[in-house]
Design a protein around this nucleic acid. Structure first.
Lengths: 246, 246
DNA sequence: GGGGTTCTGTAACAGTGTGCAAGAATACTA
DNA sequence: TAGTATTCTTGCACACTGTTACAGAACCCC
């Protein structure tokens, strides 16, 4: 509960130089304190005043060292991104390795769910997952893709993953749980849909299993797709239908 | 600029009954005013005080009629959901019709992007898109799916759509545009990835085109998948590999 | 020691959601 | 019609939020 304890444990040596004032804080000190605050108490616990109290200073100090709230969050995301850079990619064939990276993006986001939620709020998820994005690009290239085809495959996998993650996060939050899809379906009575299906839609989802399955389908689709010569974009979805049917 | 003008245009008759006070506001009046405020001035423009000023009353009146902010947003979403209920489904074969509904979910979210963003913030997107979710279930059933298989297909399509929508919204917002994936790739120098690919990853994405393509792949995967007997869940991804390869 | 830079605190501004207590306007009732 | 009861509305306050102008310490260097 002693607010200065956190700062003291981080930098005790500078606390000794100055008698009372001059907390001896650094840019990085503030950022790691903010990151720690977010990871332990959640994304909504990050406010300038709370962080300042945690550091034993005033908000003005934070503004002087790292800038406004957006700068702080961005710095925090960068810091967390560097931490979760190295990964272990498993699998023998290219598809398995791409799947492995995708699942690593998933588990990494869940491991740092608070930072991920924060990055999602400010629209900087790419900044957080950039190292994994790079690893994904490498594996896609190892699968034979390159250029526009690789770009499309990578983006599709990332966007799809983001969607599943959003739902996974939402299902964790106990707030407004009565507005989840499975709860809403329990009140649906539609004669066009048989009872067994309606009941199945009321069951809570296994988001990760569905994620694995869907990503797998996407990977196979983009790997086995014909190598599109540069950037042709014929009239809308005609191309997609033909490509997947033949 | 006259704050009472909005309320007057909505309910001019009740303004005449009471001499000065008693604004004559209804539950629905507040909700439609909030919806209008969100649609015209954005999701972040919805505050209790701004809405109250728009209606020519005080915040307490809103609290009395519809409740707190969450209740207001939920009511707003329900109202908007009922408006965008009826749709036109095109296509001859089942896959095309499922694709049509999916794209309708997309365009509907973009047409009401502010409400969608708001629903996304409070985690009630299912509440907003429930009518379209129902239409999607019907088309999936028409394609021969039912029970757990239909449930999984529906959820996969919805989650994937949500992911693409998040990115589409993010790319629209001009704030923090320098943290988009395409901008970050312009600073990447990786010898394992060839230059052509790196350059392709710097190009701005055509999110809708990718959405169409990916959803198509998902639909074909879930439609042509074997009818899984009830709810077997064998060891992780072994099943997925076998199902899609054979 | 003096001057300049760097850091920090105080206080304030303009917002946000929310709740309490009181009064006005209407509806109901005897 | 008079009086009560209920519904509606307001004013004010509380506890927050991000942000900044100003002033004064603390430090470094000469």
């Amino acid at each position: 509960m002693t607010t200065t304890a956190a700062a003291a444990t981080i930098k005790p040596q500078n606390q000794a130089t100055g008698t009372a004032k001059r907390a001896g804080l650094d840019y990085e000190d503030v950022v790691v304190a903010a990151l720690q605050l977010v990871e332990t108490r959640g994304a909504e616990a990050l406010s300038m005043r709370k962080l300042a109290a945690e550091l034993g200073v005033t908000t003005t100090t934070i503004y002087h060292h790292v800038g406004g709230r957006d700068d702080l969050i961005l710095a925090l995301i960068r810091h967390s991104s560097a931490q979760q850079a190295e990964i272990m990619i498993e699998g023998q064939n290219p598809a398995d390795r791409i799947q492995s990276v995708s699942e690593h993006i998933w588990s990494s986001a869940l491991d740092h769910r608070n930072v991920t939620a924060l990055a999602h709020q400010v629209g900087a998820t790419s900044l957080l997952a950039m190292p994994l994005e790079l690893a994904l690009a490498r594996e896609l290239q190892a699968a034979g893709l390159s250029g526009a085809a690789l770009r499309d495959a990578l983006r599709a996998i990332l966007m799809c993953t983001a969607g599943f993650l959003v739902v996974a996060f939402r299902n964790e939050a106990s707030i407004s749980a009565e507005y989840r899809s499975s709860e809403l379906w329990s009140e649906v009575i539609d004669e066009q849909i048989d009872a067994e299906t309606t009941q199945a839609l009321c069951e809570p989802p296994d988001v990760f299993l569905l994620f694995q399955q869907s990503i797998r389908a996407l990977i196979l689709h983009f790997i086995t797709a014909e190598p599109s010569p540069s950037k042709q974009r014929p009239s809308k979805k005609q191309r997609n239908k033909g490509a997947t049917h033949d």
